[in-house]
């Protein structure tokens, strides 16, 4: 299991694109939105929580289609399926690797982008906390979507269509926690709901994803 994690991390670093791409996309989005909306600080402060969460979500989506597709193409997935580790574990580890290479950098970069978007002072803690709790769910749900579409030749676009509706609860609770924090309102409730979704997804979706992978392999 550890070997699979270190391999995936090593691949992400060596092959490039793993770490940098999502982060660069996140940055570009945080630059483009003010250019589109206008420089008014009050407006930006209002929409900053939502923009940051939508940006994180889309940045996560970028690298999802390669989660299983590369292993499927080069035959590794066949071999992993016949290896002594359960396929559910493979899914969970790969989602974890995806989170470490995509989700975690986004969490760390988000406060900097918050400055660009004029995010109010009290919201920074909530932003980091909500992303920290919520982005793992994005990776796990994404792993499920990637597992469904792994056998398809142009699965990337279809996967977005499947995954984005599944992201709705995560997005709503995550962004809500940040905007409540920004207004100085208590934000514990959405945060707890967000943590619940993450915990539930991480516990159950690997089984669904592994089932989908087995179907796609046969």
């Amino acid at each position: 299991m550890i070997a699979l994690l270190t391999r995936d991390l090593r691949l992400a670093i060596r092959a490039g694109g793993g770490f940098g791409l999502g982060l660069a996309f996140f940055l570009i989005l945080a630059v483009l939105v003010p250019l589109g909306v206008g420089p008014e600080g009050r407006v930006l402060a209002l929409i900053a929580p939502g923009i940051l969460w939508v940006g994180a979500l889309l940045a996560c989506l970028l690298s999802l289609d390669r989660m299983f597709a590369l292993d499927f193409e080069d035959g590794s997935l066949d071999l992993l399926a016949t290896a002594p580790i359960p396929l559910e574990g493979v899914v969970a580890i790969k989602a974890l690797a995806h989170w470490l290479t995509t989700g975690l950098p986004l969490v760390l970069a988000a406060p900097v982008l918050g400055i660009l978007l004029n995010l109010p002072g009290p919201a920074y803690g909530w932003l980091v906390l909500s992303l920290l709790l919520g982005t793992p769910a994005l990776s796990v749900i994404g792993a499920f979507g990637a597992a469904l579409t792994v056998g398809l030749k142009r699965g990337g676009l279809l996967m977005s269509l499947l995954v984005l509706p599944l992201y709705v609860p995560t997005l709503v609770f995550g962004a809500e926690a940040v905007s409540r924090g920004a207004q100085g309102l208590p934000a514990a409730t959405p945060l707890l709901l967000l943590a619940g979704i993450t915990a539930g997804s991480a516990a159950l979706l690997p089984f669904a994803a592994a089932h989908a992978l087995r179907i796609n392999l046969r």
């Binding site: 499920f144 509706p165 709705v168 609860p169 709503v172 709901l193 979706l205 669904a208 989908a212």
Partner: peptide, 18 residues
């Protein structure tokens, strides 16, 4: 079928989120 089952759970969650 797998998507439908997982989707149902998330559709209900989305409803409460909304």
């Amino acid at each position: 079928a797998v998507l439908c089952i997982v989707g149902s759970v998330f559709a209900v969650l989305s409803r409460y989120a909304a």
